[in-house]
Simulated scan of single mutants.
Amino acid sequence: MSYPILILGGTTEAYELADRLVAAGQLRVISSLAGRTESPRLPAGEVRIGGFGGVEGLAEFLRIQAIRCVIDATHPFAAQMGWHAWEACTLCDVPLLRLERPPWTPASGDRWEEVASWSEAVERLQRLNAKRIFLAIGRQELQHFAGLDDRWFLIRLVSPPDPLPPFCRAEWLYARGPFDLAAERAMLDRYRIEAIVCKNSGSEATAAKLIAARERAIPVVMRKRPPRSPEVQSVATVEAVLDWLSRVSKM
């Protein structure tokens, strides 16, 4: 008999996991999306969109839906959701597994400036002699850079932010990955990019810009991942999640 599981999703891995589980037909799969993207791609199975209302709201959802286990497959920078999942699953005694892709690591020739906060990223940009900057950080943190009036920004997003941050000099690109290496090379050259700011998401879909930057000796201001709950078991692949679920189902 199938039982319900909850996938906290939005990542490529979360979509793949939902596809695999729904195709297997042995579980009731519910995916939760944060709802920050207009017209999001919907995963296989049941879908809910929007926040839970904190730890208590998530715990109530787990109880009402009789969730047997939770897979936290949110973005590596969705740290608050990870902590909420850990607290709610602890309250409800529900097994929790973290699915998180490995971070990128610098290779020979990379000019990374690793930072722990956006304020530090702004400081690094101010020290660099780069006037044309590619921002690839998503919609939520753009306001940190809007005050750098002496720089020009190329800002790539999946969809337009509302309201639009008050950049003095910027061009907006709306596109969804994956981005191939040839296209990233052409983009950096066409816009004469002199520095890149991004998060260490570790995604293969967006890694080509780092290779293109390395080839051009372009500095990359790289935001390090935030800390997560140390109590949560973590795996890096969908296959490892499926193996974990097979063991949990026998408990």
Rank of each mutant, 00 (worst) to 15 (best):
P95M: 11
P95C: 09
P95Q: 09
L97W: 04
R98E: 00
R98V: 00
L99V: 04
E100C: 04
E100K: 02
R101G: 03
R101I: 06
R101C: 05
R101L: 07
P102Q: 11
P102R: 11
P102V: 09
P103V: 06
P103Y: 06
P103C: 10
W104H: 09
W104E: 03
W104M: 06
T105Q: 15
T105W: 10
T105I: 11
T105Y: 11
T105G: 07
T105M: 14
A107D: 13
A107K: 10
A107W: 03
A107Y: 04
S108L: 14
S108W: 12
S108H: 12
S108M: 13
G109I: 10
G109Y: 12
D110G: 07
R111G: 03
R111V: 15
R111Y: 11
W112G: 04
E113K: 15
E113L: 15
E113G: 08
E114I: 09
V115W: 03
V115S: 05
V115Y: 03
A116E: 10
A116Y: 04
S117C: 11
S117K: 13
S117L: 12
W118M: 14
W118D: 09
W118Y: 15
E120D: 15
E120T: 10
A121P: 03
A121L: 06
A121M: 06
V122L: 13
V122D: 08
E123A: 15
E123G: 06
E123L: 15
E123C: 10
R124Q: 13
R124L: 09
R124I: 12
R124E: 06
L125H: 05
R127W: 12
L128K: 05
L128S: 05
L128E: 03
N129T: 10
A130K: 02
A130S: 12
R132M: 10
R132C: 07
R132P: 04
R132H: 09
I133G: 01
I133F: 04
I133P: 00
F134I: 03
F134H: 01
F134S: 00
F134E: 00
L135Y: 00
A136K: 07
I137F: 03
G138A: 07
G138N: 04
G138Q: 04
G138D: 02
R139A: 03
L142R: 05
Q143A: 15
Q143D: 14
Q143I: 13
H144A: 14
F145K: 02
F145E: 01
F145G: 00
A146R: 08
A146F: 06
A146V: 08
A146I: 07
G147S: 11
L148F: 11
L148G: 07
L148T: 07
L148H: 07
D149G: 07
D149L: 11
D150N: 12
R151G: 04
W152A: 13
L154G: 02
I155R: 05
I155L: 07
I155H: 04
L157P: 01
L157Q: 04
V158L: 10
V158H: 01
V158D: 02
V158I: 15
V158N: 02
V158E: 02
S159P: 04
S159L: 06
S159M: 07
S159K: 13
S159N: 12
